[in-house]
Design a protein around this nucleic acid. Sequence first.
DNA 1: TTCAGTGCAAAACGTTTGCAACACA
DNA 2: TGTGTTGCAAACGTTTTGCACTGAA
Lengths: 160, 160
Amino acid sequence: MGTRTDHHAIEPATWLRQNGLRATHARIAIVRILDASPVPLTLAEIHEKVRSEGCDFATVFRFVSILEEKELVQRVAWIDGTTRHEIRARDGHHHHHYLICRTCQKVEPLDECVVERFENQIARERGYSGLSHSLQLSGVCPECQKPGAKARKKRGPTTP
Amino acid sequence: MGTRTDHHAIEPATWLRQNGLRATHARIAIVRILDASPVPLTLAEIHEKVRSEGCDFATVFRFVSILEEKELVQRVAWIDGTTRHEIRARDGHHHHHYLICRTCQKVEPLDECVVERFENQIARERGYSGLSHSLQLSGVCPECQKPGAKARKKRGPTTP
DNA sequence: TTCAGTGCAAAACGTTTGCAACACA
DNA sequence: TGTGTTGCAAACGTTTTGCACTGAA
């Protein structure tokens, strides 16, 4: 089994600058953690793993928010109600699905995505575009696709 | 288009007693609201609809928790991060999927479930049983299926 | 009558923000 | 050096619990 980092030859610092972000100590640490994890993490879990480097929770919160705005990290509503965060792999995969044990909470990532094919079908039949999914299917409905429709509503935390 | 209640000839009070629950004014009101909604609701939304009957938020919280323990209501991690609750239909359907507009938040329920077939395949290949899904796939792993494995861990709020 | 169920209010928790000090470009 | 970033700490909103009163069985 390969690790997620196999796909990421690019150094965190380089990757950050490529995306127009400053490469600070805290940010590099956070990217490393996200990069190394095979499963989405909560903000608390990320903080737990970077606190040793003197990184504050607020920094985790704000930086992950920035990554999500730039769509470099994907927010996932986990089945237990927690909100988790997953870095987007740079190998073409945009998301993953998981098999979670209700008893021991073990998580197994699944490579396959059965929904994609269905997603295309739904998009065709209902006239939606830009569909994506993590839990439920979501997209933009015909009315909202019309030019001049109200601006896309921000989801999640925003940055100052 | 039919309403969800088409499937529910049983009166809320009768249904509650059948499931070993007391039929109080507040509980009947909450069941009615859940029954009538085509989409999962947040606790705040449920409370909003029953507050006119003098039903407290804590009552909504505790009663929905009881229904979830008895698996009469299913908890859903919504894509916007909210936690929602959906009553289990008594017509064989155990869950639904939804098409959500990112712009106007409109929700369209989808009848089809493409994951079921996949779920069976996963269950076979990985030795899982009792799989279900709403966002991620979940089930019980081989180790936890062994007789004498540790008791099933409670999810979500518990009752006193 | 009795005890489960409820309302009220406070506690616990997670998320979000303001501000002064700090560090990268 | 200057502006974006950070740590600290407080403000929020939501979830959860304790306790005394109430009402269904």
